[in-house]
Design a protein around this nucleic acid. Structure first.
Lengths: 342, 342
DNA sequence: ATAGACAATGACACCGGTTTCCTCTAGTCC
DNA sequence: GGACTAGAGGAAACCGGTGTCATTGTCTAT
């Protein structure tokens, strides 16, 4: 029973060396594809490595190299789908390499955020980290990575850094398109639920909104702009406020889907028809968007593509710059936005 | 600039030993709280450790101990919220310990599933792994962990293993309560959308459903039982089918929220009022549940408590058995279920 | 007083790789 | 033929911890 499945002692570099009749160092050279190595020797050692199923011990390498074959995903993101999508995208690239993914949720609010991440990076000696928004906006973390010599890529809603350290979606442009869609449907009075102040994404989306209105010659009426927190409840409150205003908007753009769901609730509470009485557009295309009634028109970021580019940037010095840094999101047109009835 | 933030060379055990005037081994004993150690020596060394901010190198320890201070989360779960909730629960316990969390999504369908996980465990030499459903139901993985001497905990919808290797919710009981709730509201004809065959959770929930009907003396009518896939689309299809049947149910229990959302869509398509014409109950209490209109009555598992118990079982030999293994879910009553109008 | 037990600590090998530096060959040039 | 060079590969130290075993000093039993 133990015979084939449990060949208890895994071979080490010493075993391989002995079997091949060479020194450890030569085996090490084979593993690391050293160029100054006789072709015959390489073949012979390779043969034995394959036959024994030898795999170098990552812990020993990490100790000797002072660097681990680990990619970190550091995040404090309430959007579970986004985080998981990113994990999948990273793993698709990491699979087949010797790298593993290590995930580190952190606490954005904590005063010790940078110290926490520092301890994490120093202890684990990561090869690289991917910083997800919103903590990717923290310049202290980027500086930290530089200091520690840890490769890093920040993900964000706009370029904040040099292209090799950045994977960004163009939220401003995406929102412009979304709002143009509403304008194209005939809306002239469009409300906005923003994200919380201090978030770059909130700023970008708000800017895109303003730019679209300006381009269409529409007024930017601060009375129908409400700040939210990116949470459902804030969307609900904002929706109530906007719909109760003197001259309510015929359409509302919410800066993420969760708040859009809140706005939809508010509309429901008033017995409004969506999209007949009120059109709603969200942002993110989380699972909820397609499952609401009516299904939500929203903006989908290319998470997979961004994750893949980020992974390659983290792994490969050479391919890093060849990877795109700016990605365009896609407007997903569903049923929650239509021509105003009035 | 480099002076205080970048004290480039981190102290090693040798530095501490030299500063304290003791041998490496003694420092090692202090770190590992060895009992045979003079109190004075311990204090002196501790003092220096604190002063220098020394932290043992995890890679070196891992090499020497042949075991890493890493807890793995292995999953193939489409429920992003659950996975993330579990991550958070684990981290809440791991924080403050020397353990880190490493996350490993795998491909349930892959024929090399066990081999993949084996390679992962062998390479990383994890201290322990938490297996999330549905792959937690794979006995091959549990056997693998035993073989490799890796601590493990399986999470599931029913007890499948000894309590020290298990953290289970009692789905059957929870569904019984949910269905009793519907019966209590006056429903006599209740439809069921099951999960896919082969999933333990699907089986348990179906069993709970059947048991509740039986206890109330209601017939279990196979014509209003539809098998789903746990995905939205399957819920939609099931809803359409059930509502188009000759004698449609007045309430439908869907085995997860995503399918419940699909059923709700189907009701909307037919212009039905929920809960007036149709009551709907889901399972999981994902974010979507509260955001639907009407908000979904559903079952919430105690993810945080289960994650915490799992983490303790994984970390601590002694506390493992003291931790509860079976958890009761909570019925969250919202607006999607009410008395039948008729 | 002396052997034996025990507490406290150190010396040294070891975990499994990599790096540094050195040796040994064989080929080239004059 | 001797000096020089480059290519191939090995010996030993090292990365930073832990395990094993020996050593020392102190206390107790005889």
């Amino acid at each position: 029973m133990d015979d084939d499945s449990n060949n208890n002692a895994k071979p080490t570099i010493n075993d391989i060396a002995r079997l091949a009749g060479v020194s450890k160092k030569t085996v090490s050279r084979v593993i690391n594809r050293s160029p100054l190595l006789n072709e015959d020797t390489r073949r012979r050692v390779d043969e034995i490595i394959r036959a024994t199923g030898y795999v170098p011990n990552p812990q020993a390498r990490a100790l000797a190299l002072r660097r681990n074959f680990l990619i970190g995903l550091v995040h404090d993101n309430p959007n579970a789908q986004m985080v998981l999508g990113m994990q999948q995208a990273l793993l698709a690239v990491l699979r087949g390499t010797e790298f593993e993914l290590i995930v580190r949720p952190v606490d954005r609010g904590s005063t010790s955020l940078v110290a926490d991440v520092r301890a994490f990076l120093e202890r684990q000696r990561l090869h690289g980290v991917l910083l997800l928004p919103p903590i990717s906006e923290n310049d202290g973390l980027a500086t930290l990575c530089e200091q520690l010599g840890c490769r890093y890529v920040r993900m964000g809603s706009a370029m904040l850094d040099t292209p090799e350290h950045m994977v960004a979606s163009n939220d401003r442009e995406a929102v412009r398109q979304a709002v143009n869609h509403l304008i194209g449907l005939g809306h002239r009075r469009i409300g906005l639920v923003t994200g919380p102040q201090g978030f770059r994404s909130a700023f970008e989306r708000r800017s895109g909104f303003a730019e679209a209105l300006a381009a269409a010659g529409l007024a930017f009426d601060p009375r129908i702009i409400v700040e939210g927190t990116y949470r459902f409840e804030s969307g609900l409150a904002a929706g109530r406020q906007l719909l109760a205003s003197e001259e309510p908007p015929t359409a509302i753009f919410a800066s993420n889907d969760e708040m859009a769901a809140g706005v939809l609730h508010a509309a429901r509470e008033r017995g409004l028809d969506v999209p007949g009485d009120l059109s709603i557009v969200g942002f993110d295309d989380t699972a909820i968007a397609a499952h609401l009634w009516p299904p939500l028109t929203t903006v989908r970021w290319p998470i997979q593509a961004m994750g893949k580019a980020a992974a390659i940037k983290l792994l490969d010095e050479d391919d890093a710059e060849a990877q795109p840094a700016l990605f365009l999101s896609e407007l997903i047109i569903r049923a929650s936005a239509g021509p105003p009835r009035r």
